[in-house]
Design a protein around this nucleic acid. Structure first.
Length: 556
DNA sequence: TTGTGAGCTAAACGGCGTAG
DNA sequence: CTACGCCGTTTAGCTCACAA
């Protein structure tokens, strides 16, 4: 990990080749002089207006720091622009975070100079308002520059929605069904799949996984008197994490209801295969010596044949795998290592889990979750504002499930199909290009086609007086096909008038589950089983029995 | 007493490259 | 093909001081 602050900054005077620190290096040009406001401002001004640096293809990476030539040409350029007019934004510039890092490095340097007695200026004489104004300018210009460059919007709004729809596909891709023969991908796919599921369902950070050791794992079995089956929870101690002061943090995940999504099962598979390849514990028969196995990492690399199982794998290893899959599935996202954490949090929110609990599971400081991860999908209130009960109950909205015939669909927004095809063809032929938000928008328009027809048909059925409106004089609504569709809608809506049908149907599967479980429990609950079964049978026999009775039966 | 922003810093990301 | 290093840049997210 390259970071400006992973070592003492100004300990050594000489510049070591091993120092990767960008901000520090940039500031190096200031080190030989006594810091004072003008120098600092010029330095920051240059940073604010220079081009972001990229790797030159083919040439070795070269550290740049303060480029005097570039500074002078920038100065020339901006001195010519009309001083009365607002200063132009650069085509593209570094962001506020980078500026903030420079500022931090400068203030460190200033303190260091004070400490060494080579500078006696106050902070205000080094960092003045004009420098702060520069910072504010960089901060506020981001939006303008994005707008001007037509920056992708995908991460701001849409990514979580796409994730919810596709997380099962992500899992299957990790499992890589083509790993049937002897294949060196097998190990890494099993490892990455476990990593993904664990991060998702325990809402972890990637690095908690990378740094975890086998000796951080243990399990807890929980069973309340009402539980027919125990819940087995896998616990992972997190001893090093972003910030954890003196607190010990945990990753927690239970065996998942769905076999394929189970992180504990994924771990079991991964370890089975790994041990079969490494034979690592076969030679350790003495678990009384901690030093013999405590350093063994949970996630290891077998590819490089370093045989060092205490080595932390690089985050890139995992993120590249995730990236590949996202690309393959056409998932618009900027998160890779973080994908599972985002996805886990978003899924929990969509399931209506309490935000406080999400924070606890994700080991989050309050407010960070809302700020950084919330899908902006508070489902409870959204359901309630859409006219449905906000807690409990099933979601039932009859008009939304009557699928319109394709003949009608093709007449609404006819351009969408063509545009989608063209976009797909474009993405296929030039995978390097990415316009994810276009795909998301087209997907939305596809859905709106259906909405148009469903709501129009429902209007015809429920509010026929509105059929005289100009809107409904459009060709599509005049066709026989549409009239047939309206009839279909009429039937569906008529059926749905009887809510007990709906609720009863929704309740049946859990009831059957419960019945099966009870009968498996045998004698212990024999009496209760009969009682419940009888009540439920009565429920099925009579149409008039509401779902309350059944729910009652279930909860007893 | 609770909420908030500045400050700081670790983690993540992206694009290049190399080794096995 | 996987793994991972390097460099530049952005994001995540905690702590603390201070305001409301």
């Amino acid at each position: 990990m390259s970071s400006p602050f992973n070592r003492p900054i100004f300990r050594n005077e000489e510049r070591s080749r091993a120092v990767p620190d960008v901000a520090v290096d940039a500031v190096l040009d200031l080190r030989q002089m006594e810091l004072e406001h003008i120098k600092v401002f010029q330095f920051m001004w240059y940073q604010a207006f220079r081009c972001p640096r990229k790797h030159e293809k083919g040439s070795p990476a070269q550290r740049q720091g303060f480029d005097l030539t570039e500074y002078l040409s920038l100065k020339e350029k901006y001195s010519q622009s009309d001083p009365a007019a607002k200063i132009d934004d650069p085509q593209n510039g570094i962001g506020i975070s980078c500026m903030a890092q420079y500022k931090t490095a400068i203030l460190h340097l200033w303190r260091d100079q004070i400490h060494r007695g080579v500078n006696n200026r106050s902070r205000d004489e080094v960092w003045q308002n004009s420098s702060d104004a520069l910072m504010n300018m960089v901060k506020s210009r981001k939006h303008r520059i994005n707008k001007k460059n037509y920056a992708e919007k995908v991460d701001e709004v849409s990514a979580p929605y796409a994730l919810i729809q596709q997380h099962k596909e992500i899992e299957s891709s990790f499992f890589a069904s083509d790993c049937t023969g002897i294949n060196r991908q097998v190990f890494s796919t099993l490892r990455n799949r476990f990593c993904f599921l664990m991060i998702t369902f325990a809402i972890l950070r990637g690095e908690s996984m990378f740094k975890a050791e086998l000796s951080d794992l243990y399990g807890v079995q929980v069973q309340t008197p009402d539980d027919p089956h125990p819940i087995y929870v896998m616990m992972m101690q997190i001893s090093t994490d972003k910030t954890n002061q003196d607190l010990k943090l945990f990753g927690r995940a239970a065996r998942h209801k769905k076999n394929l999504l189970c992180p504990v099962g994924a771990l079991a598979f991964y370890l089975l295969y790994r041990f079969s390849q490494t034979g690592e514990f076969e030679s350790i028969d003495d678990f009384t010596k901690n030093d013999r196995w405590f350093d063994t990492k949970l996630l290891v690399d077998l590819q490089q044949r370093t045989n060092d199982l205490s080595r932390v794998i690089s985050d890139k290893t995992y993120s590249d795998a995730v990236k590949k899959i996202c690309k393959q599935l056409g998932i618009p996202t900027q998160h890779y290592v973080h994908l599972g954490r985002v996805l886990g949090s978003v899924l929990a929110e969509a399931d209506g889990d309490d935000n406080e609990l999400i924070r606890i599971l994700g080991n989050w400081d309050p407010k960070i979750q809302e700020k950084a991860y919330s899908s902006k999908l508070p489902m409870k209130i959204i359901r309630s504002r859409a006219g449905f009960r906000s807690n409990g109950g099933v979601h039932y909205n009859a008009r939304t499930i009557v699928q319109p015939p394709s003949e009608l669909l093709s007449q609404v927004f006819p351009w969408v199909d063509r545009a989608t095809q063209e976009l797909n063809a474009f993405l296929q032929s030039s995978p390097a290009e990415a316009c994810p938000f276009a795909a998301v928008f087209l997907d939305f328009m596809m859905k709106l086609k259906v909405v148009v027809l469903q709501d129009a048909a429902a209007t015809m059925v429920l509010h026929p007086e509105r059929s005289v409106h100009q809107l409904f004089q459009l060709d599509v609504f005049k066709s026989d096909c549409f009239k047939a569709y309206v009839e279909q809608m009429r039937q569906q809506l008529a059926v749905a008038e009887d809510p007990s049908d709906v609720t009863l149907q929704a309740v049946i599967p859990p009831v059957v589950d419960r019945l099966n479980v009870l009968s498996q429990q045998g004698e212990r609950n024999c009496q209760a089983t009969n009682e419940v079964s009888n009540q439920i049978r009565t429920g099925f026999d009579s149409v008039h029995v509401g779902h309350n009775l059944i729910l009652q039966s279930i909860s007893h």
